[in-house]
Every structure is written in structure tokens, then in C-alpha cells.
Design a protein around this nucleic acid. Structure first.
Lengths: 227, 227
DNA sequence: CAAATGAATATTGAATGCATAATATTTTTT
DNA sequence: AAAAAATATTATGCATTCAATATTCATTTG
């Protein structure tokens, strides 16, 4: 019998609201009516208000005193700043991973890399992205730094709702793939400085933002996904 | 007539509790009794509980469902991890600062540097540290990346309460000062890569942790300041 | 006498209620 | 009729209340 730990209601509510924001069901800048959401979820205002405070700390909601809550607006600058930060964190994760990773985990990542290379050659962008993400997650996990992981995931969450125009040109893609070749080489010899540098400068950490920056003015809010 | 924006009570309470934790009046691992704190501050449980959720997001408090709140314990590993992270962030701040900083602000930092050099020569550790901090803050400000600033300050807050044995040996101090000479040189020519590298590897971002690590076991909790 | 059970107590989690600030509406005035 | 003032309405912030969970202490049982 597994002992079921009853989760608090405010965490449940936070999850639900987070989803609404992620999916774009709550638009950026949109006022969040406590009453509406309470009725929607069938809870009282207390846990909802607590949930909102959690979401504020995650950068998804802003709270104006006596004036309620709004879905945080994302500007191009904020997204760019966030990506710069994430690139630095990826760099650190690479450095640390080289210090801490086991030979087995290196093996695993190498296999992922080979998979990715195959998808690259087959021009399978979807699968390429999927494996690509797995590789970066594996490196982050290998860094053995929970604070880093927490921060990275938080940042990642914040910009998740932006709809990128992920048009990967052949040239970009080739360079990204080359970065990955270099990464694997550095990882194999556990060259932390090198891996860190590659990850900090890795295309994928800049590309998408660049494609946004071309589209929208600097402090304009961004469009988000809307399912 | 300046329209005074009434701050919310929970923010006020969060500030007060944060102070208590910082000062060590609430010991790490200590259970936080809602009732006690409510009486202490003369507020009801609602704003207190909201304040606690803010502090959870800042990493100062942990919340156990149905079992109340505790002051977050700091382990040596957590502090080390946090410092690794802060070093990476400082590195990024340097990189970005080189891109964005004005000539005037470079001048200002150079003057601060000269002041610090004087204090170094006079072996005035206190003043040295003070100016040192100002320099790092100036670079962070010049990075023009609010997300970065917010995160750095948050991390800084988390480890503020650790009591370090800041015994600066002459050799360490000389090397730290040399780092700073190199920083200024890089900043003057706006060599972001160089400044970033120096800051990531800067002694001050490692030193204090090292001195802790020598003292206390890896996952043991740390002693904190107690005024 | 130690471990286990059960009642009593205390504490947390969530709902409700009330006071105040903000917003929308109506009324007044020019 | 437009702008300003006054009123009504709504929503937020906080206190209080109620319910559920955890903890403590006494009692029972092996």
C-alpha cells in the first residue's frame, strides 16, 4: 500500500493555471479574475490566491496591489535576456557534467547523439529536436547541481509559451549539428571548459530568439501559442 | 501630494520573516509556527501563509504539506552549487556588460577599482570588500539584463546567512587583486569573452565556499550568523 | 515494562465573511 | 452634451471560522 500524500489544493490550482497560461488560454496581459477561476476550479479564493503567488515567483503572473493579477507579458527583450541566461546555465551544466558524469552516462549521451545525427541526415526535424532536447537534459542532469537545475527549468518554463518561427535553415542546422559533434568530443575527454564554451555559444540557445527579434519590436509583447 | 501605494501586508510580513532568517533569529531547520509569528507580527494567518509561499520561492523556507513550514537548511553542497551558479551568472554579466556599458560607467568602475587597489595596498580588508562588491554590482547593473539581475540577487539572498570564515591569505588576496586588474583591462577594451572568463573563474566566487568546505561535512547543515 | 492503541489537543488547509480600495455607473453641473 | 462629482458596484486584502490532518499524551495490552 503506497501511502498517498494528499497534495495541497493550491499546488493543484497552480498547476491548472500554469497550464492555462502555457496553452495561451489565458492571454498575456489578460486580467485574471479570482472569482472566475474559483468558479472554474470549484475552490475558494484562499488556495487560488496562494497559487497565484507561486506563479508570480515563476514569472508567469504579476500581482498588482488592490488591482488583481495579470498574466505576465513577455517582451522580446525579456525572452532574449532569458535565453542569454539559459545559455550561460547550459554552459555551466556542461562544465560540471564533465566533472561528475559517469562513463555509462557518457555512453548514453553518445548513443543519443548518434540517433540525432541519423535524424539530421534524414532531415527529420521533429525527431532531431526531440533527441536534441534529451541530450541537453541529460547534460543538465549530469551536472549534479540541483540549484542549477531548478533555475534552468524555471527559465525554460517562462518562455515555453512563446510561439517561435522555428525555421531551421540548412546552414543553421549544419552548424548546430557541428556544435553537437564538438560537444560530444569535449564530453568524451571530459573537457569542461571546452564543453562549457560550446554550450554557451551553441546556436540553439540563440537561434530562436534571433528569429523572433526579427519579427517584433523590442518591448512589444509577444504572441503566444493558442491551442 | 504623493500618492502612497499601500504595500500588501504579506509583502511586509515576508520582509520581516526574511530578516529573521537572515539574522539567524529563525534557525535553519527550525519549525515555523504560524501561530507564533502571527502573534509576533499582529497579523492573521492569511497574509503570513502567503508570505511563507513567497519565501519558499526564494529558497528560504520549505513547506511540508499538513506539517507546516521550516527554515530551509543549507548544506555545504547547496552553498557550493549556488556559488558555482553565481560564478556563471557573474561571467554572463561581464560578457553582457562589455556590450552595453557606457564609457562613463566604465570610468566609474575604473575609479572604484583604483579605490579598491588603494585599500588593498593599505591592507584595509573591510573597505576592500565593500568596494569589491560595488564593482561586481556595477557590472551586473551594466549587463542590462533584468532576468539575470533578479536571479543573481535571489541566489545571493539564499546564501547570505552563511557565516564564512573569510580568512583572506596574502596569496589569495594578491591573486584576487590580479583578477581585478585583468577585469578592468578586459572591460576597457570591451572584451566580453575575456571578462566573462575571468569572472567565471574569479577567486571570490570560489574562495569562501572552499573555506567552508574544509570545515564541514558535505551534506551537513551549515552554521549561520546569529546576531 | 515496552510497544501499541486510542482519545485529546494542537496545527494546518480551505471556506466564508467583512472592510477597504478600485472600478463602473449615474447624477449633477456648466 | 461633455466634464465633473457622487453614488453604486465590484473585487481585492485580510480576519475569522470550520474541517481535516498531525501530534501528543494517556491508557491498554502483550
Amino acid at each position: 500500500m503506497s501511502k498517498i500524500q494528499h497534495r495541497s489544493l493550491y499546488l493543484e490550482v497552480a498547476d491548472r493555471v500554469r497550464e492555462l497560461i502555457e496553452q495561451g488560454d489565458l492571454a498575456p496581459g489578460e486580467r485574471i479574475s479570482e472569482k472566475d477561476l474559483c468558479e472554474r476550479f470549484g475552490v475558494s479564493r484562499t488556495p487560488l490566491r496562494e497559487a497565484l503567488k507561486v506563479l508570480v515567483s515563476e514569472g508567469l503572473v504579476e500581482l498588482l496591489t488592490n488591482r488583481g493579477a495579470r498574466v505576465m507579458r513577455l517582451t522580446v527583450k525579456m525572452v532574449k535576456d532569458t535565453y542569454d541566461l539559459m545559455a550561460a546555465l547550459e554552459g555551466l551544466s556542461g562544465e560540471l557534467a564533465c566533472q561528475n558524469i559517469s562513463d555509462e552516462d557518457i555512453e548514453t549521451i553518445c548513443r543519443l547523439h548518434d540517433d540525432m545525427l541519423r535524424h539530421y541526415r534524414e532531415h527529420n526535424l521533429m525527431e532531431y529536436f526531440r533527441i536534441n532536447q534529451q541530450i541537453h537534459e541529460s547534460i543538465l542532469a549530469a551536472s549534479d547541481n540541483e540549484v542549477l537545475q531548478e533555475m534552468y527549468n524555471n527559465l525554460s518554463q517562462r518562455v515555453k509559451r512563446v510561439r517561435y518561427s522555428k525555421k531551421m535553415t540548412d546552414s543553421f542546422w549544419r552548424r548546430a549539428m557541428q556544435d553537437h559533434e564538438d560537444m560530444i568530443a569535449a564530453l568524451k575527454v571530459r573537457d569542461g571548459n571546452r564543453l562549457g564554451q560550446i554550450l554557451r555559444e551553441h546556436l540553439c540557445n540563440k537561434l530562436e530568439v534571433a528569429s523572433i527579434a526579427g519579427m517584433i519590436e523590442d518591448d512589444h509583447e509577444l504572441s503566444v501559442v493558442n491551442s
